[in-house]
Simulated assay, not measured.
Amino acid sequence: MNNFSGSLRIISLNARSLNNNKFAQLRIILDTLAVDIACIQETHWIDTCKINCKGYLLFNSGETEKNWCGVCILIKKNLSGYISKFDGVNSRVCSIKVNMRCKTLNIVNIYIPVNYTEKQPFFIFLDEYLNKFPKRENLLIAGDFNAKVEKIDIKNHISLGSGTLNIKSDIGGKLLLKLCHKLDLRIANTFFEHSDKREIYTYFSQTYNTWSQIDYFICNRSTMSWIKNIKVLHQVLFNSDHKIIDCSIVIDPKIWHMRKKRNGKSLSKRPKLDIEALNDHNIKTEYIKQIRNNSHKFIDQTNNLSSDTLWENTRDIFNNAASNSLPAKMNYPDWISIESKNLISNLVGSGHYRRNRAMYILNDISHKLRRDKRKFLEDRATEISNSFSAND
């Protein structure tokens, strides 16, 4: 990724419909703030689709007919190669999976119903959906939860910090705390205190003329250590009664090495191949056969391909032919005997063993390697001694 420093800026916003004017306003905000990923609720867009915007890819999840919900995720194009999956569940839930070498980050965008009668079944569905993500993977949930959690609940819930200013919990807040306690999740907003209350409140009710906190970032325990700050951008103006929540993530550079994808396949380190094996007539014949079989797929398309694509396809033909026909190169020292080489080859090429079987083979290899080295040194000493005797 170009100029990637191991940090991500993720925002969440309930847009209250995302028409052309609001979308243009949102694009300016994303460019100004240098946002990497944006989770937007209430787009009021229909269908589940992927849209290519300037500088961003937009994944929308909506209904087939007129939609009063709709959720979407915008991702910077230089990050799009690391997104392995988009799951448009319905008009209220969607998610993306970000693949890294050592970790996987799942980002879920949620818009929870306002109606109390719909909250209970939705939280049951949400519980089932979040349980599908493996525990070893990192999880970050953003969205409009339409839930208030009060400060007094801090003593009873490890999921809640002291950075909440709601006076009283509502039904949605109690359901949210119950879900977080069951799945061992953290309401990350509440763990960051700010002296300015405007950096905490997320929603202004025009009916009651009051501010409250109902939009959150929620994560599992492992993701919590990545989050450096969460605050409401009260100074950023957008035509909505919700404010933009800004989440800054800094990931350890030791684990933030993402596998960029090309043509849908992740790039991995190729094993070294024994080119000298082409001296064998059978291997050489198989190698030529593989090249011919792979090249037939592109013969009819060469006239329509660009020079870069043609070069990539040609390179892939030879690489795939070599991988399918040539053996892996094993650099053994000259003093290792053929018997020890065969033992090592059998261990490497036979897949995973049970622990006791593997230990037995490894001990056997170590014993024979020591024997080979000792015999090699004795033979060399004998040769040197004989050379001196011949000179005398």
Rank of each mutant, 00 (worst) to 15 (best):
residue 255 I to D: 06
residue 51 I to R: 04
residue 307 S to F: 03
residue 369 L to R: 12
residue 297 K to G: 00
residue 266 S to G: 12
residue 178 K to P: 02
residue 53 C to D: 12
residue 202 T to V: 05
residue 304 N to Y: 12
residue 250 V to A: 10
residue 89 V to I: 12
residue 32 T to A: 09
residue 128 E to P: 01
residue 24 A to P: 14
residue 5 S to A: 05
residue 16 R to W: 01
residue 11 I to Y: 02
residue 306 S to G: 11
residue 59 F to H: 11
residue 47 D to W: 11
residue 79 L to P: 14
residue 162 S to N: 09
residue 223 T to C: 13
residue 94 C to S: 07
residue 391 N to G: 10
residue 359 M to L: 12
residue 112 I to L: 06
residue 259 R to A: 10
residue 344 I to P: 06
residue 111 Y to W: 12
residue 27 R to D: 15
residue 213 Q to M: 09
residue 215 D to Q: 11
residue 263 N to Q: 09
residue 158 I to V: 15
residue 287 Y to P: 00
residue 293 N to Q: 03
residue 245 I to L: 02
residue 217 F to G: 04
residue 302 T to L: 13
residue 269 K to M: 00
residue 110 I to L: 02
residue 194 H to P: 08
residue 271 P to F: 15
residue 176 L to M: 01
residue 116 Y to D: 00
residue 26 L to E: 07
residue 356 N to W: 01
residue 194 H to V: 08
residue 298 F to E: 11
residue 357 R to M: 07
residue 169 S to W: 05
residue 185 L to P: 01
residue 322 A to Q: 09
residue 384 I to M: 01
residue 139 L to H: 05
residue 192 F to E: 04
residue 38 A to V: 09
residue 389 S to P: 02
residue 372 D to S: 02
residue 289 K to V: 10
residue 210 T to F: 03
residue 375 K to C: 02
residue 115 N to E: 14
residue 59 F to M: 13
residue 353 Y to N: 10
residue 14 N to F: 03
residue 18 L to W: 04
residue 134 P to R: 10
residue 141 I to S: 00
residue 311 W to T: 13
residue 255 I to G: 10
residue 276 E to Y: 13
residue 4 F to H: 03
residue 9 R to M: 00
residue 340 S to M: 09
residue 65 E to P: 00
residue 209 N to I: 13
residue 196 D to F: 07
residue 378 E to F: 01
residue 376 F to N: 15
residue 305 L to Q: 12
residue 185 L to Y: 02
residue 68 W to S: 12
residue 295 S to Y: 15
residue 128 E to N: 12
residue 202 T to H: 11
residue 67 N to A: 14
residue 56 Y to Q: 05
residue 226 W to P: 01
residue 217 F to E: 01
residue 350 S to M: 07
residue 210 T to R: 06
residue 231 K to S: 11
residue 278 L to G: 03
residue 131 N to Y: 04
residue 159 S to I: 14
residue 100 M to N: 13
residue 292 R to P: 02
residue 296 H to D: 00
residue 234 H to C: 04
residue 339 E to R: 12
residue 174 K to H: 01
residue 326 L to V: 13
residue 94 C to N: 09
residue 287 Y to G: 07
residue 82 Y to T: 06
residue 227 I to G: 13
residue 219 C to P: 00
residue 13 L to H: 15
residue 294 N to K: 07
residue 357 R to P: 08
residue 151 K to M: 05
residue 156 N to Y: 14
residue 38 A to N: 08
residue 126 L to G: 11
residue 25 Q to W: 05
residue 278 L to N: 05
residue 319 N to H: 12
residue 345 S to R: 14
residue 382 T to G: 03
residue 213 Q to C: 11
residue 298 F to G: 05
residue 269 K to C: 05
residue 214 I to Y: 09
residue 202 T to S: 15
residue 304 N to K: 14
residue 72 C to W: 02
residue 15 A to D: 10
residue 311 W to I: 06
residue 105 L to N: 10
residue 329 K to V: 02
residue 80 S to F: 03
residue 35 V to P: 08
residue 14 N to S: 04
residue 371 R to L: 13
residue 380 R to P: 09
residue 108 V to P: 04
residue 81 G to R: 01
residue 366 S to T: 08
residue 366 S to K: 08
residue 186 R to D: 01
residue 49 C to V: 15
residue 360 Y to I: 15
residue 362 L to C: 13
residue 194 H to M: 04
residue 166 N to Y: 08
residue 141 I to R: 02
residue 381 A to L: 08
residue 121 P to Q: 06
residue 243 K to F: 14
